[in-house]
């Protein structure tokens, strides 16, 4: 992390050896433009926070990174998004595989109406990642462990996931995402539906996961962005206003709009 932060220039979108990049990204919902020429690099094994007022396009941008916008009718995208240097909107890229490599955790915990075990095993199963029941067991256990949930649920792996508390459900969703060994995990306001204690646990978890995964998190809470992220990008009205080291953004924003948002004058 130190190496990256030293070389990174404040307010400059690019980083060295980015895991993902977005260049000149425009997005339209039918006729309405939602993103304008977004240039952003996602640094490997760091947490990048996307902040900004509601409707600023940060969630939309996040969903471009694993092509979740494909599932919405009438969305057109211009520009380029790369993962490890390859354009993910290339025709040869298989969206199914792409989403396995770039996992996603959503705003509201959305466990499938199945058992805890089956929720976590879902990804490995559909992608054919395992050859035996033992292997699957191991993946489920490791993933739950990694999401910090194993201790709480190991005695009831076969009980329905919908019976868990909100915070547990969200960590289960993280475990579910982790189970397919993604390289990047996208999180869309993962704590907005959780109480403070559950939030603390998830934040802690995000910090843990950083050592193995590249994480992009959309958040409404500036405190959260400050706590968990190394880089922060500020979006406003569909444009990327400013991006840089989290410390720099919060202590010394270059742009007036960023300053205004951070100091609470609008948002």
């Amino acid at each position: 992390m130190a190496a990256v932060s030293q070389s990174a220039m404040a307010a400059k979108p690019s980083v060295e050896n980015p895991k993902m990049t977005a260049r000149n990204l425009d997005l339209f919902y039918s006729d309405n433009q939602a993103l304008y020429e977004v240039d952003l690099d996602i640094a490997e094994k760091q947490v990048t926070a996307l902040i900004g007022p509601s409707g600023c396009g940060k969630s939309t941008f996040l969903r471009c990174l694993n092509r979740m916008n494909d599932t919405i009718d009438g969305v057109t995208i211009k520009g380029e998004v790369t993962l490890d240097g390859r354009d993910i909107y290339d025709k040869r890229i298989d969206v199914v595989q792409l989403r396995a490599r770039i996992g996603m955790v959503f705003q509201k915990p959305n466990p499938f109406p199945k058992s805890i075990y089956d929720n976590v095993a879902y990804g490995p199963r559909i992608h054919g990642l395992v050859n035996s029941r033992d292997e699957l067991d191991e993946i489920v256990m490791t993933s739950l462990e990694r999401a910090g949930l194993l201790k709480e649920v190991k005695d009831r792996l076969q009980s329905p996931a919908t019976g868990l508390s909100g915070g547990q459900q969200q960590r289960l969703c993280i475990a579910r995402a982790v189970a397919v060994s993604p390289e990047v995990i996208l999180m869309d306001e993962p704590c907005s539906a959780l109480d403070p204690i559950a939030t603390a646990k998830v934040e802690e978890l995000i910090d843990e996961l950083r050592s193995n995964y590249t994480i992009v998190i959309v958040t409404h809470s500036m405190q959260q962005a400050a706590r968990v992220s190394q880089r922060t990008a500020f979006f406003h009205l569909g444009k990327l206003v400013e991006v840089g080291e989290t410390d720099q953004i919060f202590t010394n924003p270059k742009d007036e709009r960023t300053k205004g948002y951070i100091t609470g004058r609008f948002g």
């Binding site: 792409l98 996603m104 959503f106």
Partner: peptide, 27 residues
């Protein structure tokens, strides 16, 4: 069936039919 369940399945890289068979039908 809430959209969030579909999203969860698509987000893991499931195809449409896998989502329908494994998530939407049971739900």
């Amino acid at each position: 069936v809430p959209k969030s369940l579909r999203d969860g399945s698509y987000g893991l890289g499931a195809t449409k039919s896998e989502t329908i068979r494994n998530v939407i039908f049971p739900a």
